[in-house]
Amino acid sequence: MGYYVKVQPNVKVYVEDLNPEGDNTIVFLHGWPGSHNLFEYQFNELPKKGYRCIGIDQRGFGQSDRPFSGYDYNTLSDDVYCVIKALNLKTFTLLGHSTGGAIAVKYMARHKEEGVSKLVLCSAAAPSLIKRPNFPYGVNKEIVTNIIKETYVDRPKMLSDFGEIFFFQYITESFADWFLQLGLQAAGWATAAVANTWIREELFSDLAKINVTTLILHGIHDKVVPFKLGEIQNKSIKNSKLIPFKYSGHAVFYDEKDRFNEELVKFIQ
């Protein structure tokens, strides 16, 4: 079941709500530059096990509205909060992948973990995706500035190149095209704006505010968000556990989808 939730007077975000009668709710926050459809191989299985799966398309991406502003972590986490309140969710697991993981971290700090019983961070872009003077563990800033430049010059080529480093396991040409189409569904300005947020914002203090039990799933071959960031999240979040995925890149939810689903279910039970 899909529907829209108003998050601002002129902005609505799309929500996919699978198995609304499920006993255990998981809210999924997707990574850049995709949509809730990135979690197709979780949505195929988890509702059959009794889980309610809620996928939110971030503003500018997927089927959500595409405003020209609001792509900072505060606003993106506020959008999630609006969905949580609209659906009257009281107790749920919050799962964020990549940029969705950064938004989840901001939600936990900014909205005082409201409703979240457990947190799952998957290849999360936190505390900082890029290297900074006091933080040498991310990617070089030039990589992100080039992504922004190429978004305005040849977005399909940029997205295609990004797809080549997103996965560690072999994917078919058809699957690569599917991934490309998910990225093309987003607005170009939203694609660039979120990349600019990676440069402007960091989440060091936000990580320290997380109190709920947290599972960190990270591929050791991740070329987008280096595995070191998962280790730093593990050290920064008090009650957390890091599980390395030895045969995964950035797409930990697909590269080892069966193990990913198993670890997720084991954690939530």
Rank of each mutant, 00 (worst) to 15 (best):
I143V: 11
A187E: 09
L182F: 12
I56S: 08
I103C: 03
A86W: 07
T99Y: 15
T172K: 02
K149M: 03
Y71S: 06
I237R: 02
H36F: 15
K118G: 03
K12R: 14
V7C: 12
E45M: 13
G230F: 06
S117K: 13
N234V: 00
I54V: 14
P20R: 05
Q8S: 12
N44A: 14
W178A: 04
K118D: 06
T99G: 10
A125E: 04
E263K: 04
D154A: 09
L29W: 11
L184N: 04
S236R: 07
R132D: 01
L29Q: 07
G70R: 09
K90Q: 15
P156C: 10
V80Q: 10
R59Y: 08
A102T: 06
I243R: 00
A208R: 14
L203V: 04
D161L: 11
I171Q: 08
K49Q: 15
S240Q: 02
P136V: 01
D65A: 09
G34T: 12
P20D: 14
E40T: 11
F162E: 05
L242C: 04
G31R: 07
Q169I: 00
K6W: 12
D65G: 10
N146K: 09
K266Q: 07
G183A: 06
A176H: 14
K266G: 00
I210H: 06
E45K: 13
F204R: 10
T191R: 00
I243C: 02
F245I: 01
E114D: 14
K118A: 03
T145F: 11
M1Q: 15
L159G: 08
G101C: 08
V144F: 09
F227W: 03
G188D: 15
Q233I: 01
H250A: 04
A176I: 00
K246R: 00
D222R: 06
L217A: 02
S123W: 08
S69D: 13
N44Y: 15
S240E: 07
R200Q: 14
